[in-house]
Design a protein around this nucleic acid. Structure first.
Lengths: 107, 107
DNA sequence: CCTCGTGTAACCCGCCACGTTACAATCAGA
DNA sequence: TCTGATTGTAACGTGGCGGGTTACACGAGG
């Protein structure tokens, strides 16, 4: 019950970049450049994620998880919520046209 | 504790296509062609997902959720596990080189 | 033999994560 | 105030890949 159904959410879920920008990075006291080289990606990639202009991919989720001792699922999960929300709001009209399939069989 | 850590899993997580192929579709008694038109995608897309050769995207997750009365998160979650597993096994050497960041600040 | 359901090859398209290079702007410290 | 560090971001290029369409082959039943 406390579960999902982002369909009804009014606000866009928190982008992982926000967590990174507002909590993780400040706590670690790292510059974007430092973090980039630690993770083995470009500075630009870090910058765009912090600005929530690029998603956290499975690859980035693993890198972040390694660096900050969290689970990759945590980062990717945040991203998924955002992605689902975005897609839903972009195509909800189309989705509404899809009819429920009857689970007729095996009755 | 019972949670994630697919890093240690020996087997590849269940691909959503397997659920679709072995449970959902048979129960619904639908042909691939029927399902495709119901969801508004091509037959090929359905076929490749059933064969686990293509991921369930956020878009497909929403479509499946509509058609089968489930949550999009369920479908996408399955896919994420597979994606994380695949990425991890493809690049674990590289990830192991990433050092843990000290949460030095705010002590 | 013909049809239905299905696998899949071939071809095309558009999107996008990511890298590199480079430049401008901001800011802190000497 | 000059300077170096940090950061935003434009420009350009690349590879990967989700997805559509068309078309052909094959197996199972009628």
């Amino acid at each position: 019950m406390p579960n999902n159904w982002l369909n009804n959410r009014k606000r866009r879920p928190t982008h992982p970049g926000e967590i990174l920008r507002e909590d993780v990075l400040p706590a670690a006291g790292l510059t974007q450049d430092k973090l980039a080289s630690l993770l083995g990606v470009s500075r630009r990639t870090i910058s765009e994620i912090l600005h929530e202009r690029r998603p956290v991919t499975t690859d980035m989720a693993h890198r972040l998880a390694r660096a900050f001792g969290t689970s990759p699922e945590m980062w990717l999960g945040l991203q998924q919520d955002v992605d689902l929300w975005d897609t839903h709001h972009a195509r909800r009209k189309e989705y509404e046209r899809i009819k429920r399939v009857a689970t007729s069989k095996a009755a």
